[in-house]
Nucleic acid binder design. Structure first.
Lengths: 111, 111
DNA sequence: TGCCAATACCTCGATTGTCGATGCCTACAT
DNA sequence: ATGTAGGCATCGACAATCGAGGTATTGGCA
C-alpha cells in the first residue's frame, strides 16, 4: 500500500562505495554496481541512473580514470581505475562518513 | 573538529533524528536542532533551512503534532510532540537505516 | 539609552543527487 | 527469430539540503 518509495539507498554514499569497490580491482560500471549489490547482500541497489552520473563525477574530479576495453565475455566495456587522488578522496570520505555516523549513533542511542 | 568544506549532513536521516529527539521530550524546533547538535558532539548541524521544512513534512504526514506555547525563557515557541504514528514511522526508519548501514559496512569492510 | 547577540519562527531560490524511463548496441541461448 | 542479459549512457522529474534573507522578542552591556 502504498507508498513505498523506499529510499533504497543512503544518499551521499555512492561515491564512497564506488571508490572503495575500485580499491579491490579495476572494474567497469555495470560490474561495480553488481559487486556492491552482491556484497551488500542486496541491501544496496545502484540504479544505472545513479551509477553513470556518479562515475562522471569521479572522472571529472580525477578520482578515477577510464579506459575502453573488452570484458571476459567479449563485450565492449569502460574500465575504471582508481587514481592516487581517488585513494585520498576515499580516505577523506570514509573519515567524514564515520564522523557523521558516530554523531548519528550518539543521538540514536540517546547517550 | 568539524571539517570546513562540505561537512554536510547525511541526507535522508534528518526526519529520523528529529523523531528520535522527540521520544525523549517534546520540544520546539530550535531546541531540537540544538539538542541534536549538542548530543552529536557538534558532528551534526541542522540548518534552519533544513529544519523547518523537515518539521513541515512530519506535520503533514502526521508523525508529529504542534502546539504554540511559551518557553521557559518567555519566548513564543511551537512545541512538537510525537504521535503514535510517529513512533511507528521512527521504528520503520530506524530499521531501514540499520539495514542500509549494514549493507554499506559489508562493502566497506570488503568482507 | 542605544545596540547587539541570541533565541525563535519561517520562506525562498539554487544546487545536488537519486530514480525511473528510455534508447542503443552486442553476445548468447532458445 | 526472438528474447534475455550484459553493457553504455542520457533525460526529466522529484526531493532534500543549504545559504541567505526576513521578522520579532528577550536580555545584557556600555
Amino acid at each position: 500500500m502504498a507508498t513505498n518509495k523506499t529510499p533504497e539507498f543512503l544518499p551521499g554514499t555512492l561515491d564512497m562505495l564506488i571508490l572503495k569497490t575500485l580499491t579491490r580491482a579495476s572494474n567497469h560500471g555495470y560490474g561495480i554496481a553488481q559487486y556492491i549489490q552482491k556484497v551488500s547482500n542486496e541491501a544496496l541497489r545502484i540504479g544505472e541512473g545513479s551509477l553513470y552520473p556518479a562515475l562522471q563525477r569521479l572522472l571529472v574530479n580525477g578520482w578515477v580514470e577510464a579506459e575502453w576495453g573488452i570484458s571476459e565475455t567479449g563485450r565492449r566495456v569502460r574500465i575504471y581505475r582508481l587514481t592516487a587522488g581517488g585513494r585520498k578522496q576515499l580516505a577523506r570520505e570514509v573519515a567524514e562518513f564515520d564522523y557523521l555516523i558516530a554523531g548519528i549513533a550518539r543521538v540514536m542511542e540517546g547517550a
